[in-house]
Simulated scan of single mutants.
Amino acid sequence: MVCLPAAPPALALRTWLGLGLLALLCLGLGQAREKRVIRSKLGENVSLSCCHEIPRSESLQNYRTYWQKKCPGVTLVVLAYSDGTLIEVHDRYKNRTEMDPWDLILRISPMEILDNGTYQCVVQHNSVVVCDESVTLFVTADFSQPSITAEVSASSCESAEMVIVCSSHGGFPKPRISGALNNVSVEWNASWVSESSPSPYNVTGTLVLNVTSDVNVTCSVEHDGLAKSTSLLLEKTNDCVVPPVPPPYNVITASSIVVITFILAIILAARYLPRRVCPHCCKPQDPVEEGMKEGTKPPVSLKVTSETSSV
Rank of each mutant, 00 (worst) to 15 (best):
E133R: 15
M292A: 01
Q68A: 13
T261Y: 06
S185D: 12
G84M: 04
I164H: 07
S82N: 06
N116Y: 01
V123W: 00
V221K: 09
L209T: 07
Y63N: 00
T65V: 01
Y249M: 14
N45T: 11
D103V: 13
S197W: 01
L209G: 13
C26V: 13
L234R: 03
G84I: 05
P198Q: 03
C278K: 09
R14N: 14
E290W: 00
E235P: 11
R56M: 02
A6C: 09
G73E: 01
N216M: 09
L114E: 11
I260Q: 11
S127V: 07
T253S: 05
S178A: 08
S49Y: 11
V74W: 04
S156C: 15
I263R: 05
L76A: 13
H52S: 10
D214F: 02
A6Y: 08
L4P: 06
I257L: 04
F172P: 04
P55I: 00
A150T: 14
V78R: 03
K174Y: 03
L13I: 08
A154T: 10
P9Q: 08
S185T: 10
C50M: 07
L226S: 15
L24G: 14
P5R: 09
K70P: 02
P248S: 13
V130A: 00
V215D: 04
T136G: 14
V259H: 02
V186R: 11
T140A: 10
R275P: 06
C131W: 00
Q124H: 07
T230Q: 08
R275W: 02
V211H: 06
K70L: 10
L104P: 11
V122S: 01
I87K: 07
H52N: 07
R56L: 08
L137M: 11
S191V: 06
D103W: 05
N189Y: 03
T97A: 15
C166M: 06
C281M: 08
S309H: 03
V245E: 13
I260N: 09
L234Q: 05
V208Y: 13
L22D: 09
T296C: 13
Q120W: 00
P8L: 02
T75V: 15
P274F: 00
P9D: 12
E53M: 02
T149Y: 00
L11I: 10
S127K: 13
S40C: 12
S194M: 07
P110V: 08
E158I: 09
P198S: 04
L42W: 05
S47I: 12
S231K: 10
S153G: 14
A180Q: 09
N250R: 13
H280M: 08
V152K: 11
V208H: 15
G179N: 03
L268P: 03
A265N: 13
W16V: 15
C282Q: 05
Q31S: 15
S309Q: 03
D132V: 01
N202P: 04
A23D: 05
K283C: 00
T149L: 02
